[in-house]
Amino acid sequence: MRITFIKILKEAARKNKDIFLLTADLGTFFGDFIKDCPKQFIDVGIAESNMIGLAAGMALAKKNVYCYSIIPFLTMRPLEQIKVGLCAHNLNVKLLGAGGGFAYGLEGMTHHAIEDIAIMRSLPNMTVVAPGDLLEAEAIAKESINYKGPLYVRFGQDKTPNIHKNSTKIKIGKGIIINKGNKIALIATGSMLSSAKIVCDNLIRQGISTTLISMHTIKPLDVNLIKKILRHKAIFTIEEHSIIGGLGGAVAETLLELNYKGLFKRIGLPDEYSCYKGSHDYLCKKYCLTPETIINQILKFNKKYDFKK
């Protein structure tokens, strides 16, 4: 997914010499970008706070700057530089974060990113997106070039099946209905999109009319789309992020204000640093974020709410 994004960025950078890619000494896949646009690539060293400050200065000088690192180092180490340098000045700087959720599983909690969406979406002027497949990554990459203001792009695992058939409807700030049903709605973001698709297909096979939404943009949240699913009996958000303040938090805030009367549940990670040690798949299993475990979490409510009726 990152590779797809950078490929598109490279094509844009070849034509637009004001595009810059900064990295805090991470990203072994920048070879083509460096080869084609050597003067527009800067490895700033392992110094993320300075990277964000530099990006702010460069953007004040009309440069279009992309900053790359692993999410905790990109978003949390220099949080105040992001707040003052990027958000207060409302600058055209894009933060490209690798390793959403447990993508860096065995690297441990320092590399896990379970709080980033909550933190980034609380910053005024910041847009927060998490592409769910390659087509979303591609479309967001293209749109990011002329996007105004700071943008945070959260990448999950690299290998993700395509869920969309084409990219025509993919636009920052607009969620996408992938399947339309009328009993329960699943709203997924980023790395959970493919699992949510499997869940959706399975529930449909069981006779439950299921809506699936890809909410690749968490801020600004597509409230109009949420208004369209208020008649569903139940709404579930699915994300590889803490249930505090991420997609689930954002949707919960909206549903309460819209006076939603059905069942609402956030499916995500609990408020803790992983007490398990293992790969991405292992940790997702342990924290009930595999398609099977998500289905179980949803069907737990079937007896009370009878999703088939």
Binding site: I42, S49, N50, I52, G53, L54, A55, A56, G57, M58, A59, L60, A61, K62, K63, E80, Q81, V84, G85, A88, H89
Partner: peptide, 19 residues
């Protein structure tokens, strides 16, 4: 440039100088 939180000006200045 907006300032007030210390330790940010030199990086921003370096970015402007680099550009």
């Amino acid at each position: 440039v907006t300032t007030g939180s210390l330790g940010n000006g030199l990086s921003i200045g370096a970015g402007l100088a680099l550009a």
